[in-house]
Computed example of a mutant assay.
Amino acid sequence: MSFVTSLSGLKAAQTDLSVVSNNIANANSTGFKKSSAAFGDLFAAAPTQSTRSVAGQGVRLNGITQQFSQGAVESTDRTLDLAVAGDGFFVVKGQPPREAQSYTRNGSFGVNVNREVVDTIGSKVQLLPVDANGIPTSTDPGAMIDFVLPQSDPADPDAVLSNITIADDGVVTATFSNGNQARLGALALASFVAVEGLRPMGDSHWQATGDSGVAAINKAGIGPLGSIRSGSLETANIDLTEELVALIAAQRNFQANAQAIETANNMTQTIVNLQV
């Protein structure tokens, strides 16, 4: 039994090592959220058996959970580099034909050939329609629109786009060469009842699941969604010193379980030799 118990410890230590290694590897990934492994002990006994005479049977993995604490916000001085100072997620929509909706903390956005504002994997950033005062006219997910940069002023085709600004509440304002301004919409942010239930997709993107609940959509500045920081990006919420200590602990745990297996093997070999 000691072989099986120590083997479960080896597997647990290896899983812990993999989780910590992944955290360290993504220390420079924009919007990355670190993970931690949770373990539980294994114990089995018959209902009428005294538990005082039964040893545990090892350890098992209860789950790997992501920690959505705020990462540091670093300035880039690029308008379409956006960071959320709060709990919200940017809402993005994949390219046709699937157009799958996902959520991200990676606000490193750019513009494609169709003048659509897209993220690092080509998904289109979503806006909520707003009135002249920047108030959303609807927060229904079906009302969201693609973030597209206009080429010219709708009221004056000869006036081209000069620049855009994004306020702390996520409202996007376009300024044209004739001095006119137009509100394009407000960046759609999503929040979840149980954020740990989101399914990671990679590239700092997540999908909603039954465990996370349905996304609540609104603009920045509402409740826990937080505010938008234009010209900034959120770094990974990784403390390298903490992760390196965890790495050493996982290595020691692995070595201890390996030593337990070696000791059990020596004891078994000694018993076999006594029987010969």
Rank of each mutant, 00 (worst) to 15 (best):
V73D: 02
S18N: 15
K124L: 08
D119R: 00
G185S: 04
V111I: 14
I164P: 01
N22D: 08
Q207C: 03
R52A: 14
N106D: 13
T175N: 07
L128G: 02
V125K: 02
A38R: 15
G40S: 14
V130W: 08
G226P: 14
Q67W: 08
T48V: 13
A258H: 02
V195S: 08
S8D: 04
Q259T: 13
R60V: 14
A132L: 09
S212L: 08
Q207T: 09
D239N: 15
G71L: 04
N178G: 07
P47Y: 14
S21P: 00
A260M: 14
S69T: 15
I64T: 05
A194S: 14
N133M: 12
I135W: 05
Q251T: 09
T137E: 10
T30S: 06
I164K: 05
T79A: 09
V113S: 15
Q259A: 13
G56D: 09
V193L: 10
V20G: 06
A208T: 11
V91L: 01
F3W: 13
F90T: 00
T30M: 08
A46T: 14
G86A: 03
T15R: 12
N106A: 15
V59C: 07
W206G: 02
A55T: 15
S21D: 04
T15P: 01
T15C: 07
G226A: 01
S29V: 10
T139N: 15
I64A: 02
P224T: 14
L17R: 07
P96L: 06
H205E: 10
T139H: 06
A236M: 09
G107S: 03
G86I: 05
Q57E: 11
T268K: 10
P136M: 00
S18C: 05
S35W: 12
E116L: 13
Q269L: 10
I222G: 09
G94T: 01
H205M: 13
Q275C: 02
S212G: 06
K33L: 06
P157C: 06
T263F: 09
S2L: 11
G56R: 11
F3L: 12
A188M: 07
N112I: 09
G40T: 13
V117G: 00
V276M: 09
F192N: 00
Q181H: 03
I228R: 01
D16S: 13
G86S: 03
S50L: 09
D77A: 13
D41N: 12
K33Q: 10
D211I: 10
S177Y: 01
S232G: 07
P96Y: 08
S138G: 05
A220S: 06
N112E: 08
L274P: 05
V113F: 11
P129W: 00
N273G: 01
N114Y: 06
T175D: 01
N133H: 12
V171G: 07
K11F: 05
P129N: 04
G63H: 03
A258V: 05
V118E: 00
G142Y: 05
I248S: 08
A216V: 15
I261S: 06
V118A: 01
T139Y: 04
P136K: 00
G122V: 01
F68T: 00
I217A: 07
T270Y: 07
F3G: 04
D41E: 14
K93I: 03
S204M: 02
V148R: 12
A264W: 04
N163M: 08
P96G: 10
